[in-house]
Design a protein around this nucleic acid. Structure first.
Lengths: 100, 100
DNA sequence: CAAATATATGCAAATATGTTGATGCGATAA
DNA sequence: TTATCGCATCAACATATTTGCATATATTTG
């Protein structure tokens, strides 16, 4: 539970995934997608109060970077977490954030 | 260990801290600063092979966002982690890494 | 004080990201 | 087939981040 390899590739990969998550809307999305739950774009955009285009855009970023996965079902596309562990990041960040 | 509040402020704060971390050089810095260890700007810039100005800039970002703390000692400034837990993020990310 | 060392900061060009409206497109319903 | 829903994507513009050079400041040394 300790050592981290510092190869440039790992740094790049880690940064890539972190950049994917580092946006309020995208953190919100991850927050909505607990466990096995899968939501449609419309459900997500309504809960987070963002435009359709914006939601779609952010979902794509999360999917491209391997954070989410999606499946199409009729007219809908359901998005869900690919790594439940990623939620830990948000938990972790929130627990670190609070003593200014 | 479970529920995450989704208030806009928390989302912003979480995103802010994540953005601070989401850069290869800055992840590298966190990687170097295990435990209590504190390093000078020069030590950090040499290990990560970045310019002086760049190292200084990145350190400032990490400090401003509450990731690092610093103490001055003579001509040197020693930087160290403010939240050991933040290292978990890097570990977590790496363990999630892509299996395309 | 002058010089050297360690770090910080201002600035500007290059690049990356975010935002929004319009439009395209597959799936279903009428 | 036409209309509509759900979503994706394009385009254009706005904002933010990164990088490096030049320069400034602080500390110690001679």
């Amino acid at each position: 539970m300790g050592e981290i390899e510092l190869t440039p590739e790992l740094l790049e990969r880690a940064a890539d995934m972190l950049r994917a998550v580092a946006h309020p809307v995208r953190i919100g999305i991850i927050g909505l997608l607990e466990g096995e739950r899968a939501l449609t774009v419309t459900e997500i955009q309504k809960q987070l109060k963002v435009g359709q285009s914006s939601a779609s855009h952010h979902l794509r970023i999360l999917k491209d970077r391997g954070v989410l996965q999606s499946r199409r079902e009729g007219k809908n596309t359901f998005y869900s977490l690919r790594h439940e562990r990623l939620r830990d990041i948000v938990t972790c960040i929130n627990s670190c954030g609070r003593e200014d």
